[in-house]
Amino acid sequence: MRFFALIVVLITGTLLLYATVDMPDWGDPYSPANTHVSPRYIEKTIEETATPNIVTSVLADYRGYDTLGETTVIFTAGVVCILLLRRFK
């Protein structure tokens, strides 16, 4: 069983290591992830939201739905912990 797990892990790791050859270099300013959506956020954050911290403005303003769903997730986690474990006497 352990041997089988090790084989699976090694195959997955080898495939991923092989795929990193095609990944952009570390710290490359012209990689696709750095040139497509985020420059719009960086350049417009002051004039659209008056918030210098871009992480806050993207988190709460541009992508507010994401954070709403995520707050709901942690709320659900708290409620689930109370429902599963709390024992009233």
Partner: peptide, 18 residues
């Protein structure tokens, strides 16, 4: 993946204002 060489943290410098 988000790092850029020679870049600063994502907070606009001198950005206290509209």
């Amino acid at each position: 993946t988000g790092s850029k060489k020679g870049a600063s943290i994502p907070i606009i410098q001198n950005g206290h204002g509209d």
